[in-house]
Amino acid sequence: MVRLIPSDEPLITTLLWTVLLSVPFAALLAIRDWQPLSWSGVGWVLASTLFNLGYQGCAIAAYKRAHASQIALAEYSGLVFVTLAGIIGFHEIPDWWTLAGIALIIGPMLIRKKNTGTAKEIPPAPAFIKE
């Protein structure tokens, strides 16, 4: 999808559209179980939003500069780090289904990376996708 973003569109514009389009869906999901937020809760929401925007900005910039197959392993490896953060920070021990899911997502990429050795030439994108 990032390849469809015009190359001259500023990153902040892409992030703005992402937020504006996702807020109504998040609001629909939150209405049913809404509870008033404390000020510390507002702080956590703001911190989470800033980190999320930082991640999205980095991901969009990376996908604009490289092919998705070159970025996927790094992005999906985040599952491992999030799981470790859950274990260390929240004492949440993942069940076998979680570990199996992580293995099913990351395993094939590791095997493919090992078998291919060096990166192959990426064929050119169709004309309607080029930046």
Rank of each mutant, 00 (worst) to 15 (best):
L28H: 00
G43S: 07
L11Q: 09
W96K: 12
I122N: 14
A127R: 09
L16P: 00
L79Q: 11
I87E: 00
L29Q: 01
C58L: 11
E92W: 02
G54T: 15
I31H: 01
A47S: 12
K114G: 01
L50H: 10
R65I: 07
Q56T: 01
H67N: 11
S77M: 12
Q70H: 12
G101D: 01
W34M: 06
G86E: 05
S40F: 08
S40H: 05
T118L: 07
A62R: 05
R112K: 10
I122Q: 15
L15S: 04
E75K: 10
S40Q: 01
T49L: 14
E121K: 15
G41A: 03
L50F: 14
W97I: 00
D8M: 08
E121D: 15
A127C: 06
L37D: 07
P124N: 09
I106E: 06
I71P: 10
A68Y: 13
W17Y: 02
L37F: 12
A68L: 14
S77L: 15
D8K: 15
S38V: 00
T18S: 14
S69P: 04
F51C: 13
I87P: 00
G101T: 05
T116A: 02
K64E: 06
G43V: 02
S38K: 01
D8Y: 10
T118A: 03
A85S: 03
L79E: 05
S40G: 02
F51T: 03
L50C: 12
G78L: 13
V82K: 08
A26Q: 03
A59L: 13
E75G: 03
L73K: 13
I12Q: 13
V82Y: 06
P10E: 10
I5P: 14
F25M: 04
F81Q: 13
W34N: 07
Y55R: 14
I88N: 02
L28I: 05
G78T: 10
A74Q: 05
F128P: 06
M1Q: 10
L28Y: 01
L46M: 11
M109T: 11
I93V: 04
I102D: 10
L110C: 14
I106Q: 08
Q56N: 09
I60F: 08
G78W: 04
G57M: 06
L29W: 01
P124H: 10
L53S: 02
I31M: 09
P6Q: 14
V80I: 15
Q35G: 11
G41F: 01
L104P: 03
A66H: 12
I106P: 04
P123A: 15
I102N: 13
V2N: 09
A74N: 09
P126N: 05
V80C: 05
G117M: 12
W34E: 04
I105F: 05
M109D: 10
I31L: 06
S69N: 13
S22V: 09
T13G: 06
T118S: 11
I88F: 05
E92D: 08
W44A: 09
P36N: 05
L15A: 04
S22W: 02
L99I: 12
A85D: 06
A100I: 04
A59E: 09
G78F: 08
G78P: 03
L11V: 09
F128N: 09
P126T: 09
G101V: 02
Y55T: 12
S48T: 07
P124C: 09
L29K: 02
H67S: 11
Y76C: 01
L29Y: 01
I88L: 08
E92P: 03
A30Y: 00
R3G: 15
I12H: 11
R32F: 01
V42N: 06
